[in-house]
Amino acid sequence: MFSKRKFMCLAAAATMLAAIPVQAFASDWTPRRPIDFVIMAGPGGGADQIARFIQSVVEKNDLTSRPLVPNNKGGGSGAEALLQLNSARDKDHTLLVTLNSFFTTPLRQEGLGIDIQTFTPVAMMGVDPFVLWVHKDSGITTFEQFVEKVNADDGQFVMGGTGKGQEDSIVIAYMSGAYDLNIKYIPYDGGGAVAKDLAGKQIMATVNNPAEAKGFYENGDFVPLLAFSDERMDAYPDVPTMKEKGQDFSYYNQRAIVGPPGMSEEAAEYYRDLFQTVYESEEWQNYLQSESLSPLPMNAEETREYWTKQVDNHRELLAEIDD
């Protein structure tokens, strides 16, 4: 506990620090306060795991002078997190860990008034591909059999996912459109719940990131049918991609770090260096491999271009869902 006098001293020191012009730190900016590490999802989900993993790498290797403090703002499909970032008071000490609701939520909830192009790109940590899974007891082993079964069930084939407008539903909608499939879609509140209900055969198939289905796959419960990646995945060399099936479609979950609008260039540079170090660490490289993430290194300008492309893509894909 601080004594009152100590507290006053600290407060005075803090005011003085704040009064010093920012330029003084231009050459070697370092964080002066704990960093608000906003996560676009609730505790325990895929995005949360990645954020905490990154935090742990930073902590373990002692990479910052101030800690990253994870702050779960999952409300409204990440809308809450986006608003928090958009109106961050301390622009140099706020960071966001994204998934694709970074693109979809501003499109689906236009009233939020969020323009992601105003945000500051910091780092692209990797992209997470999607895979179509069925339970081994279904007897389905190829994508062709899957299409046949869905057609035979005539609207009674049940798939689970994390909700309308979420990543997996976009993939399912595209797949349904391309192969004229009539699928019954049940929304759940997270990838874990979806995987559990596929394991319990409450639903018949899912589209999940490999990380969420890996345990069951290794146990032989889940069978991967199709990967929605550009190339075959190293961890699943026998699983064909949708591109091989003649559809020009791939879909990834963006795992990136983003700063608020108006983050100072010095701070942005500091964080870019920081996350570059994290990216190159042995821990992160092992994580990319074990969780089947693909690397997608890009600089700030490339990231902005990537965002523009993604927003356009998602606008089209979402229009398909709403039809």
Partner: peptide
């Protein structure tokens, strides 16, 4: 199963991934 039964176990599960364990039936 590698599936959280409560919010706290969800975070423990994340911890297991960080420690390099693979949660799941195995």
């Amino acid at each position: 199963l590698g599936i959280p039964g409560s919010p706290t176990t969800a975070i423990l599960l994340g911890g297991m991934v960080i420690w390099g364990l693979v949660p799941g039936p195995q």
